[in-house]
Design a protein around this nucleic acid. Sequence first.
DNA 1: GCAAAAATAG
DNA 2: CTATTTTTGC
Lengths: 273, 273
Amino acid sequence: MRFRLATWNINSVRLRLDLVQRFVRAENPDVLCLQEIKCQEDQFPRAAFEAMGFPHIAVTGQKGYHGVATVSKIPLVKMDRLDLCGDGHARHVSVVIDDGLIGHKPLTLHNFYIPAGGDIPDPAANDKFQHKLDFLDALTAWSAAHKTKAKNRMILVGDLNVAPLPTDVWSHKQLLKVVSHTPPETERMAKALASHDWIDVMRRHVPPEQSLFTWWSYRNRDWRVANRGRRLDHIWTTPALEGAAVAMRVLQETRDWERTSDHVPVISDFEIA
Amino acid sequence: MRFRLATWNINSVRLRLDLVQRFVRAENPDVLCLQEIKCQEDQFPRAAFEAMGFPHIAVTGQKGYHGVATVSKIPLVKMDRLDLCGDGHARHVSVVIDDGLIGHKPLTLHNFYIPAGGDIPDPAANDKFQHKLDFLDALTAWSAAHKTKAKNRMILVGDLNVAPLPTDVWSHKQLLKVVSHTPPETERMAKALASHDWIDVMRRHVPPEQSLFTWWSYRNRDWRVANRGRRLDHIWTTPALEGAAVAMRVLQETRDWERTSDHVPVISDFEIA
DNA sequence: GCAAAAATAG
DNA sequence: CTATTTTTGC
């Protein structure tokens, strides 16, 4: 089974439906994970996605903020959602991808939108940063609990809002005190990765010496010149899918599109035995 | 001297510049008075009005709310502004129209945007209604003070936010307790009219038995069917201009334009000796 | 710099 | 229903 998976923080799916269409026409993903859809579930533009060839749709939404959706050309079964911090935020949806072949082991796809964490990287002074650390801890606990099954076939994608490696930001030194790259966050992300021996697919394709970004702030108008980016979006797989991600690309060019998201899509082609 | 005068509550001049252009192309007014321009003076699109053939511009603006502007093809002199309630609101601009002929008496044009007055027609419970009544009283006092000169040639136009006659609303009975048609307002408007023997030009052209509206709420989508309108916009002249307004039309058709104002323009042709 | 919502005004 | 400003969040 071969398929193309894409993840994109779209920053309002209703406002940027046209950009999604342009992306889908150009790259033809089989499964597309969106974050920050910023709408309720009944406001999700289902018809437009069906028209784009994605009849299988799983959405977790809320009013105004957050929200994730996974749309697929391949049938989806067992849609589910997690509320890791028990706060009712729409930050996760999972699906089991089922291409209809008999006897295959299940393949679960988790789509996450981890809290951004506010401006001040001090959990005592900033509730939102505390919430982000709690969410990362809960992610690790949840992930560790799943490790009981060694052959678990799982993909985890999304806007994780952490740039874990020094080369995942434009300046390691200057960002050590900036939310998304502080030690409490990067250490927690390392623990999350270790908790299920998750494979960082993007870094399997781009060596850690090389800088790799998926997000550039709206505030830098000349984003390509300054190149003050961060790698906030990720694709992980469990060891059972070792080698399955046969290709990976960061779609930087979308950052130049008119009225685009501050995040760019990440694509990975999977070849599953 | 012959000229065409128009008044229109445009409900944001920047947002509806294209509609103003369409109106100007169709009706070719010589002088155009706008209300609710909703911009500061330096944000007023002067260049666009100059391009439309209005090099003479008088603006009283403020941030976000209210604001009036008079633009003209005929030279304007002695631009002035009144602050009848001393609250700094941008609700008036006056100009003296000067066509360059020697020996003519001055002709002053006042452009007003009277407070809407909020929802509850009780001055004790609603400061905005009190403000509206105060404004109408101040208008009467100001107008009476000008009566010293019997030959005063003045035109007063604008969104006066009062529908004075029973036929100026779609249902006299149902609107007696609705702000714009309550007795405290209509009585004050009658006093204002009497204070300088103002001529209600619109009613000189349409008999008071006939209903006459210039505004239809955005809330009635099918405005033409229900026809729940009110006459909130007015053109008055002093007795010295008796007979000068040789024609008058209410441009109802603009209410059907895309994304239009809830008010429609009123046009009057003047023939001044 | 953007986006959505809430508040405010009409 | 429409527009602007303010607030919150990213």
